[in-house]
Amino acid sequence: MLWDFFLITLKVGSLAFGGGYAMITPLHYDLVTRLGWMTETEFSSAVAVGQITPGPLMIMVAFMGYKVAGLPGATLGTIGLFLPTTLIVLAIASSYLRFKDAPMVQGAMRGVNLAVIGLLAAVVIELSRGAIVDPLDALIGLAAFVAAGPLKRDPIAVLIGAGIIGFARYLVGF
């Protein structure tokens, strides 16, 4: 079971394009639907653990591994999920750095960079659709923008501030 779990995480780690969120559905399919190693409740508490802890969301795989096969499962599952990304990035990075001065590679990177900025701008729209529901949410977003941008505050401090306001509005019942 430990070995099979490792292979599943390796598979998901190599095939899930589209960021961390793209990994959740394949993991759910294998661990809950196909093999029944985890219940729906256990799976959603794994996702909740990933959301509530700092760092990458996908560290939820450690929680899944622990449920399946204890500490070895947590360790191997984490290695399995993150190893493919590491190897692929290393392969791209080493050939990129070797050829980065070639005109065509420079042109390609220029194109990629501009596309990435456009993509990230679209991410802001996507994030705001889920996060900005009422005027106070919008105000928190605006305050975070001013604090992180013009006022150059530390992002971590900005997030803590936003969390405190969110909690305060709950206490006040607004």
């Binding site: 909740a48 653990v49 996060a131 928190i140 605006l142 936003a162 969110g166 709950y170």
Partner: peptide, 27 residues
């Protein structure tokens, strides 16, 4: 037990709204 209780959800909602502005400034 980690679950989405009302406190966690309230904090998460505030943080999520903050992330929008924070990330916009980075972009």
């Amino acid at each position: 037990q980690v679950e989405q209780n009302a406190w966690v959800m309230a904090i998460t909602r505030g943080v999520a709204a903050g992330v929008v502005g924070l990330f916009l400034s980075v972009v």
